[in-house]
Design a protein around this nucleic acid. Structure first.
Lengths: 354, 354
DNA sequence: CTGTTAGCGCTTTCAG
DNA sequence: CTGAAAGCGCTAACAG
């Protein structure tokens, strides 16, 4: 039924080894022979069996990309950029081919799912793995994920952490850490400079490194201005979702009447905040300033356009892709800090003078 | 270095065949033997080699998911839902495992890239392929894509088309077609009922089935009201991007002063339209009504909330996932039409009375 | 430059 | 119920 190397060899009147050499192009083959082989390949519509090839050569065409939520542009942008680099160099048709296949895995941020996918990738002997998004902290499985990653790295799988704190891994593992703490600090600093003194904060999901770092940055800025005492009361829990932003804003409005600004842990939640404010008849930024984090594409289209912190997601994803493909060498120390730049737009202004 | 079946067998004091049988659980094995084998697996941290297994059993753990742009939530939502179904049943650890690995491939809507990825997937002997998003039409490569899909289907790869017109494929191929034409017709019908008579339209990219169907639906609604004559002049080209919506709106505003509404081919472009309108000092919907298509999550947060057409992307993606896994049987005739529901929100209102 | 010969690690008859 | 043996389709030495 399905045509194999041997079929091609027979048709071209050569040995299967020769066909293999022509296809892989990593060995000298006479021009006439090569032509004959290629014609046979065409005629038979031969397509190599990647599994057999991988088994024999101990290689793999697969690279895993773990994301928390592929439907979220935050991850979609990184995954897309990484994938473009990973596939880079691939040529269609029946001929040779460079690039690899990116396997994007949705973990929902759940360490168990991460573990499952890492095992699945290990099973396929993936050439590399990119893990994006913050790490879960303090869970039982967190340790297991680290161990699995260590195992993969020591087995020769290239491991790249993108937007996640560095881990002590052997092999050529690299980390692109996001400066969430610094970005958050600058963002809240901006609000403080505008004159705000009662700033609400809606966090990300519990026990995640990203949540913690952004909150720490926010608190650091408050501390800079001697406002640390009030911080706890002005903080409500969220989960990076729009609904959480909406609920959080309502709660803050109810409990902190003197509030003049709300910072959400990300843009999506900030949109929910805006919706809640609108519903209460409050104007942004005249009555309350609002800020997010990430600078996703839709943030500039919010009304008013959102002040936020820009993370170069596309560049980071592309770089992670190059790192995992070994096309770029790891930064010294294996860790590179990705800077987060403050982007001030229309949603923040000085507090009402009243 | 890496531990194999034989290592486990040796440790457990059985043959490798027995280990295989325990791991696959598809053959009777004595309880005591099984326990011994499982313990050896644990101790050695054995993980099966998917390539070898695939080669020997002529199976694959991979399922391809082709999308136009993974950074676009339109595709992210479908891909995420499909992936959840594909991975479904997978259990972590060292034991057996049901689900498969979804390989999400970004094609950028380019038929050549589609071809490349399909070949790559064919090479890996993927168990199935889901192709999402509209098809390119009239390109040289379009035919080649169809041929490749036909080849895959006849080779036993399950092919599912999701949001793309049906193709005559052998094997168990299924199609989930989106009712773009009907949805667009109802959307423009809504505007006409509100009293609009000069409705601008910003299209999607050229030569794509989705673009064509949505435009056809729009025109059909106009024809229902005897307004077909003016349609050409009120249509400008776009590409589903925000910038195209922005540019298109400016162009329409300049050339059609009597305009009272603008329909964009999708929500993203509609956001660009709103931005252009805002910039010109026009209020939505008081001066100009705006409508999009897709009902992406951010559309409800636009200001004003966008009137649009809802496509059940999550359900469609999940269904495509079940179909490709053979967990749900194909609809009669192999084609199922996914309905597109009109969602009226604040961005549309009757035209100014002046 | 090309053919021969071993496997890669696993599944799967076929015997026992 | 378990073991032995024959491949799955390909690559990679090793000889010519």
């Amino acid at each position: 039924m399905t045509v194999t190397l041997a079929d091609v060899a027979a048709r071209a009147g050569v040995s299967s080894a020769t066909v293999s050499r022509v296809l892989n192009g990593n060995y000298p083959v006479a021009g006439s022979t090569r032509a004959r082989v290629l014609r046979a390949v065409e005629e038979l519509e031969y397509v190599v069996n990647g599994q057999a090839r991988g088994l024999a050569a101990a290689t793999s065409d697969l690279v895993g990309v773990l994301v928390n939520d592929i439907a979220d542009p935050f991850f979609g942008i990184m995954a897309g950029a990484a994938q473009a680099e990973i596939a880079h160099g691939s040529r269609g048709g029946t001929g040779t081919c460079g690039g690899k296949l990116a396997v994007v895995c949705n973990t929902g941020g759940c360490p168990e799912a991460e573990l499952t996918y890492l095992t699945l990738l290990q099973r396929q002997r993936a050439a590399g793995v990119i893990v994006t998004g913050g790490a879960a902290e303090g869970t039982e499985h967190t340790q297991a994920v680290t161990a699995k990653l260590a195992r993969l790295a020591s087995d020769g799988t290239r491991v790249v952490l993108c937007g996640r704190p560095p881990l002590p891994l052997d092999g050529d593992a690299a980390t692109l850490a996001f400066d969430n703490r610094g970005g958050a600090r600058r963002l809240t600093g901006h609000l403080l400079e505008l004159g705000h003194r009662h700033i609400g904060y809606i966090t990300g999901p519990e026990n995640r490194s990203t949540t913690r770092h952004r909150l720490e940055g926010h608190r650091a800025a408050l501390a800079d201005h001697g406002l640390a005492a009030d911080a706890e009361r002005l903080t409500v829990g969220g989960d990076f979702g729009r609904a959480a932003g909406y609920r959080g804003a309502r709660e803050l409005l109810d409990t902190v009447p003197e509030l003049t600004a709300i910072v959400a842990a990300n843009d999506t939640a900030a949109l929910g905040v805006c919706a809640a404010l609108r519903e209460r008849g409050l104007r942004v930024p005249r009555d309350v300033s609002v800020a997010g984090f990430d600078d996703l594409p839709f943030s500039v289209d919010a009304a008013p356009a959102l002040t936020t912190v820009r993370l170069p997601l596309h560049e980071a994803g592309a770089r992670a892709g190059r790192l995992v493909m070994g096309r770029e060498s790891a930064p010294p120390g294996g860790v590179s800090m990705v800077t987060a730049r403050l982007v001030t737009r229309a949603s923040t202004a000085p507090p009402p003078t009243s």
